[in-house]
């Protein structure tokens, strides 16, 4: 999901010089006691690095996530839906900014993070590498993608790192509107004309599997997340969150009268869980590796926006410098 980074191997693990065991023990004790770690507190280099990567990727996901929805903004079929969608996309930009701001407290600059995104070095959530092909995708994204994000984000509100936890509290407050507006669109479409219902089913068909893949590989294949759990950055396992999401969502799909595109989905009476059919991890790997339908497009759109905005940013800086120079001259003359 937006926490895909926690499933990846830390490329610099084992390269750190040994940490002071006393400091490390005190640090871990604070974490174990559910106390927050703040920017000026001592922290292991690997903790700092993991969080920088995790928070940056989360921020990048929000920013790239503006594109699939932006794709339908100017074609919104009513003024009300247009305003709601515009507000939602604006929220996503805002979330990106909160998160970049939180990541910066760890010593990485916004410019550095943006460079990493634009160069393809940093990742973002794989879900945004899929195209939005009809209006119902706006519903499916809110309902499923934001729904999955909420599942993950609520525990993050209690993450050990203070600035990240506080940013997540802000984000969660705004996120509930996102899922509701998505489901509202799905309801409207599902009970609408035959064409609308077909659009809704089509959107669900394309969005279901990528959404549950967002939670990351099965726990059995995810060996790199133990440290993140110990540091209380990651609070629940991938399968745990995925199962909760599926259990919550199946009745919602039933209510809509839509069919989840999983012929093997079945209810386990004993556990009370809706058990998913096999997930196609080849697809997940393929999209992560850059061969999803929209990877190239999402990145190049972002590169283009940044490139075309360069003269504006330069001009703003030039103007600020001129104003400062004039003020200094005035002071001298006085």
């Amino acid at each position: 999901m937006y926490t895909q980074a926690l499933n990846e191997k830390d490329p610099n693990a084992g390269k750190d010089k040994a940490e002071d065991p006393v400091l490390e023990a005190r640090f871990q004790a604070r974490v174990d006691e559910e106390m927050r770690i703040e920017p000026n507190d001592w922290m292991p280099a690997a903790y700092r690095r993991t969080l920088q990567r995790q928070i940056a990727q989360h921020a990048h996901s929000e920013v790239i996530g503006m594109q699939p929805e932006g794709n339908w903004l100017t074609r919104s079929p009513s003024l009300k839906r247009k305003a709601i969608l515009l507000a939602k996309i604006q929220d996503e930009a805002g979330h990106g900014l909160y998160l970049y701001s939180a990541a910066e407290t760890l010593g990485i600059s916004r410019e550095e993070m943006e460079s990493q995104l634009l160069s393809g070095k940093a990742r973002y959530s794989s879900i945004f590498n899929y195209p939005t092909l009809n209006w119902a995708d706006m519903g499916a994204i809110g309902w499923l993608v934001d729904g999955a994000a909420i599942m993950n984000q609520i525990p993050l509100c209690r993450c050990s790192y203070g600035p990240y936890a506080r940013a997540m509290v802000r984000v969660c407050k705004e996120e509930s509107f996102h899922q509701r507006q998505g489901y509202d669109i799905m309801m409207q479409m599902a009970k609408g004309t035959p064409e609308q219902k077909a659009m809704a089913q089509d959107a669900l068909n394309r969005t279901w599997w990528p959404s549950i893949m967002m939670f990351g590989p099965h726990d059995s294949d995810s060996s790199h997340s133990e440290q993140s759990m110990a540091w209380k950055i990651k609070r629940f396992s991938n399968d745990d969150l995925r199962q909760r999401f599926i259990n919550a969502t199946v009745p919602q799909a039933e209510y809509l009268g839509l069919t989840i595109p999983d012929p093997d989905l079945k209810f386990n009476e004993e556990t009370g869980n809706w058990e998913s059919g096999p997930i196609d991890w080849d697809e997940f790997k393929r999209v992560l590796a850059g061969n999803g339908p929209c990877n190239h497009q999402r990145l190049s759109t972002r590169q283009k926006a940044v490139a075309e905005g360069e003269w504006v940013r330069d001009a703003a800086a030039a103007h600020a410098a001129k104003v400062a120079a004039r003020a200094a001259n005035k002071e001298e003359a006085a």
Binding site: L86, I89, L97, A305, E308
Partner: peptide
């Protein structure tokens, strides 16, 4: 709305969205 995701900086994307929201509301 046409500027969504394309503004010279993210902060300006938000400002333009605010302008857009005001105008759609007036409309």
């Amino acid at each position: 709305c046409e500027w969504s995701g394309k503004a010279p900086m993210l902060e300006e994307d938000m400002a333009l969205s605010n302008l857009g929201l005001d105008l759609i509301g007036q409309a």
